[in-house]
Amino acid sequence: MPSTSTSTSGNTRRPLHRIMTAATDNWFSRGYLLVFAAALTWFGVDTLFVYHPDASFAGVWPMFLTLPTSLLLLIWSGLPGWALVIGLVPAALVNATLLGLFVRVMGPAGHRRPGPQLGRGH
């Protein structure tokens, strides 16, 4: 007797896979994530290993790079610093995904999915 149950894990993994593909399948998104990772690494090294007699602005750059998504993290007023830093990673992934989707829409016509061309009289 054949099994009639369907797996829902395939249905839930597919949208996540499509989102992550949009965040990493082009050079603009990859470059953005690389710059963000470099800024976050610089912040970590500066915080842990470099002595400063006054404040350092190393922590500002990862926040700037994830704007406007990182503004959502500032809604919580009592958020500890480590949670803010961890929250920047999903903010960067959201921005990379939006950048990837923008690149897909604005990319050359040869890379677009086939479909009806609006405005062309064939």
Rank of each mutant, 00 (worst) to 15 (best):
M1I: 06
S3R: 06
T4V: 08
T4D: 15
T6D: 08
T6R: 14
S7A: 11
T12I: 15
R13H: 09
R14V: 02
P15H: 13
P15Y: 10
P15T: 09
L16G: 01
H17S: 15
R18N: 09
R18E: 12
I19H: 04
M20S: 14
M20E: 04
A23L: 06
W27C: 01
R30S: 06
R30H: 02
G31W: 03
G31Q: 01
G31Y: 02
L33Y: 05
L33T: 02
L34N: 00
A37I: 12
A39T: 12
A39P: 04
L40I: 00
L40F: 13
T41S: 10
F43L: 09
F43N: 13
D46M: 05
T47D: 12
T47K: 04
T47Q: 05
L48S: 11
L48R: 06
L48C: 08
F49C: 04
F49M: 11
V50P: 00
Y51V: 02
H52T: 05
P53F: 04
D54L: 05
S56A: 13
F57S: 11
A58D: 01
V60L: 13
V60M: 10
P62D: 07
T66K: 02
L67M: 15
L67E: 07
T69S: 07
T69V: 14
S70N: 03
L71V: 08
L74K: 09
W76P: 07
S77Q: 15
S77L: 10
P80F: 02
P80S: 11
G81M: 14
W82N: 12
A83R: 06
L84C: 06
L84E: 10
V85G: 03
I86W: 15
P90K: 07
A91C: 15
V94E: 03
N95E: 03
N95M: 03
N95S: 10
A96P: 01
A96E: 01
T97V: 04
T97A: 14
L98D: 00
L99W: 04
L99E: 00
G100L: 15
L101G: 05
L101W: 01
L101M: 11
V103C: 00
R104N: 11
R104A: 05
V105R: 12
G107N: 07
G107C: 01
P108R: 08
G110M: 06
P116Q: 14
P116L: 12
P116M: 02
L118D: 14
G119L: 10
G119E: 08
G121I: 06
G121C: 01
